[in-house]
Nucleic acid binder design. Structure first.
Length: 485
DNA sequence: CGGTGGGACGATAGCGTCCCACCGGTGCTCTATT
């Protein structure tokens, strides 16, 4: 055991230039290397990529990494090339047919292959991989199995079959955010035995993120509060809300009303612009991104100072993921949720799926023409039907899912309406109770007199500001209340 | 639930007002046209 650790340390130093493990890394590496299927729940910034990069360098055979986004695959390929690993490839639809053939016929020359669940389960891909020794199979962002599999990207539900076919020597599931229930769900949906999977679970607590919720009377009051907050907080921040058009409008308005450089980010933005916005935010050319849940995964910016939710997300898991992007540099950061009565309606509605009746579903012959009947859910419903489910079974799956999602919204609401300590509320959901060191920097409930200025956020950079309008200074005095230093 | 866009209507020239219907997130891949 110690010998193996010494070997691991040596490679870590030589190839990646690290001297020490971060919390959870050593345990995860040891378990993975010795062949135990391992689920690692490690907070953002814990160095999850090293957990497969290192075995990839040390082990013979191929490491296959399942990644939810093409952009993440490209990032990982680049990062490995930057540390001198050249036997690396991504396989996805951004490659043309010839390039894909080439990758599949050169698998034995690779140490790392990044791909999506959708590509992995294609018969020719499985066939090509079946002929390889897969030393390690990694599912990155493994919560996607639970979060996206059932109703958004159903191919995640076929990873269990892929595992059965490929029989990898080792298996590693990685995520930053998973409640005990989600951990179980991931393991179950992969067809694994709950007792045979080792778990390495670090706390989701991020002590340097101050937690606050502000209740406001209507949407307009929320907008005014938001304007005040971002004016004070400056760079760098993220504002989350739940509609694309809302993001466009809010971003345009903030650009107009402040000297901040603001962009809207959502799935409707052209890919080239999405890339540009990410880069500008990363390099500090943008101060603020107003985004839907599309923004986040793979955003590796250490000095995000605040995350403001203009609308509540669909679950506490989603909330923790989104605020977790703040303060990776360990300096003080701020997570504020602006709530107004009725805001839970949007997440509740997003959890609903309109389905044809079981009888109609039974009559559907899956094909190109089914999309108009099935609407938004076409892909996932077709998936279930081609898997051999009856109409009734499909209807039941979605009914259960809707129920589960409604419960998640309620749980999110309980955080909003908490009157004890928000951090304890949040940690309890993740099955964690721990000593909370500093009441002052914990949350708005343990420190009711908090103001932004007290949090000692790094100073806002001075920049040329637009002339202040009269009504704005009047607003400032109107809203000089607790919580708005 | 709340915001919005379109149509009807009213009172009378270029609009205001009301009501109703509608919509709201996340991404992979393939395929048939431009």
């Amino acid at each position: 055991m110690t010998e193996q650790i010494e070997q691991i340390r040596a490679v870590m130093k030589r190839v990646f230039g690290f001297d020490d493990f971060r919390p959870g890394q050593e345990e995860t590496l040891l378990k993975t290397m010795t062949g135990q299927p391992t689920l690692a729940v490690l907070p953002t910034g814990a160095g999850k990529t090293l957990l497969y990069q290192l075995p990839g360098v040390m082990l013979d055979g191929l490491v296959v990494i399942i990644t939810p986004l093409i952009s993440l695959m490209q990032d990982q390929v680049d990062r490995l090339r930057n540390v001198g690993q050249s036997r690396v490839a991504a396989l996805n639809s951004s490659l043309d047919y010839q390039e894909q053939r080439w990758v599949l016929s050169h698998l034995s020359d690779l140490d790392f292959l990044f791909t999506s669940p959708e590509t992995l389960i294609k018969p020719d891909v499985l066939r090509a991989l079946h002929n390889q020794t897969i030393s390690l199979f990694v599912i990155d962002e493994a919560h996607c199995i639970s979060q996206w599999g059932p109703d958004f990207r159903p191919e995640y539900l076929l990873l269990n079959q892929a595992l059965t076919t490929l029989k990898p020597q080792r298996l590693l599931m990685l995520t930053a955010t998973a409640t005990p229930a989600v951990q179980d769900d991931i393991i179950n949906r992969l067809g694994l035995n709950i007792n045979q999977v080792s778990r390495v679970v670090e706390s989701v607590n991020r002590p340097n993120i101050f937690l606050a919720v502000q209740h406001l009377d209507n949407q307009d009051a929320k907008r005014r509060r938001l304007l005040e907050l971002v004016t004070k907080l400056g760079t760098s921040g993220i504002v989350y809300l739940s509609s694309r058009e809302g993001a466009n409008q809010l971003a345009a308005w903030l650009n107009e009303q402040t000297s901040l450089r603001v962009a809207a980010y959502h799935a409707g933005v052209a890919p080239i612009d999405r890339y540009r916005i990410q880069q500008q935010f990363l390099t500090g050319t943008l101060d603020l991104v107003v985004a839907t849940s599309a923004f986040g995964m793979g955003i590796d910016k250490s000095d995000i100072r605040y995350v403001i939710h203009f609308q509540m997300p669909v679950s506490l898991e989603a909330y923790v993921q989104e605020i977790g992007r703040a303060g990776r540099d360990s300096r003080q950061a701020l997570a504020i949720l602006l709530y107004c009565r009725g805001d839970e309606q949007i997440p509740l509605l997003l959890g609903k799926i309109d389905l044809p009746s079981a009888e109609i579903l039974d009559q559907i012959k899956v094909g190109k023409t089914t999309d108009t009947i099935l609407g938004d859910a076409a892909h996932v419903v077709s998936f279930y039907l081609t898997q051999g489910m009856s109409g009734r079974e499909v209807v039941n799956v979605f009914a259960k899912l809707e129920e589960k999602r409604a419960g998640q919204v309620q749980r999110m609401l309980s955080y909003v309406q908490e009157d004890g300590c928000r951090r304890q509320n949040l940690l309890a959901y993740f099955g964690q109770r721990e000593f909370l060191s500093d009441k002052f920097t914990c949350c708005d409930l343990t420190n009711p007199d908090w103001v932004v200025a007290d949090l000692d956020l790094p100073p806002v950079q001075k920049k040329v500001s637009l002339p202040v309008l009269d009504w704005r200074s009047r607003l400032e005095s109107l809203f000089a209340q607790p919580g708005l230093g």
